[in-house]
Amino acid sequence: MTRLDRRAVLGATVAAVALMGGMTAAKAEYPEKPVTLVIPYKAGGSTETMARVYSKALAKELGANVVVKTRPGAGGAVGASEVAAAKADGYTLLFAASTSLMWPPLTQKVSSDLDSFIYVGQITEYQQAIVAKADAPFNTMAELIAHAKKNNLNFADQSAMSRSYINFIGGQEGVKWTGIPTKGGGEMVPFLLGGKVDFAYSGGIHQKYGDKMNVLASFQAKPLALAPDAPALGDLYGVSQLGNAVMFAPAGLPDDIAKKLHDAGKAALDDPDFTKILENIKFPKTYVSSEGLVELATENEKALKAMLEATK
């Protein structure tokens, strides 16, 4: 190494040490440095956009900067594993659909599961549904089943999980239909409107199509807030997909920090910018506290396992 190189390295080291010193100055009350909110999906999606606006509201409530970090991969499992492995000090949080944490451990080898996290709060609910084209020969779930008994139907799913649910229903009703995998709502819509499939799982995209698509059933435990007339799978078959965006923290978070996060997370929901964005993307604001979520999740996980058993 030459003289100048060494000097350069030295300079960088000095700068680094100085920076480090500045950051660990004095121990103060949480939060004393920026909080990182990990989003385990690609940038540009609706959950990511929502989380970015929410992070600004959360920052106001916490009185500290909130940095959003996208960490996509394996349907959310990469980001979730990273947060699960992070220090439980409240500076690393996860904003994700709870199914992204629940499903991978059941079917794949991943290093984290729901027990690796505690809930901070539910932010919103996805509007998941079974949908069909408006001019389809069936308009309700019952008519769909009757139609399927006489015809060979195809449906578009968006993940192994959504396919399992629909196949489970088929099994209960004694009909057989074929799941066509799609890469998300953007591919499902042309398939459905173009008549390539007969019905489809929708993660909420059907709301953009007004009267061109019919909601046959809610994919969740209760009827959807925005399509209250359609029955819910939870009521019909006792299974449902927990469709909610939740803020998580790694398990083992000290109680005082958890409480502070909990309060700030709840208060941030009322931020006007965040309210506006939820209105625009047509998501209902459905806050559920951490206690309520534990109950919901355990119930759902049990149902999910039973369903996986049944469709094996």
Binding site: G44, K208, Y209, G210
Partner: peptide, 15 residues
């Protein structure tokens, strides 16, 4: 871009 349309309350699509 669709994401951007939507957060501004403009839903791309037939409507």
């Amino acid at each position: 871009l669709i994401g951007a349309f939507i957060i501004h309350g403009v839903v791309p699509g037939p409507l």
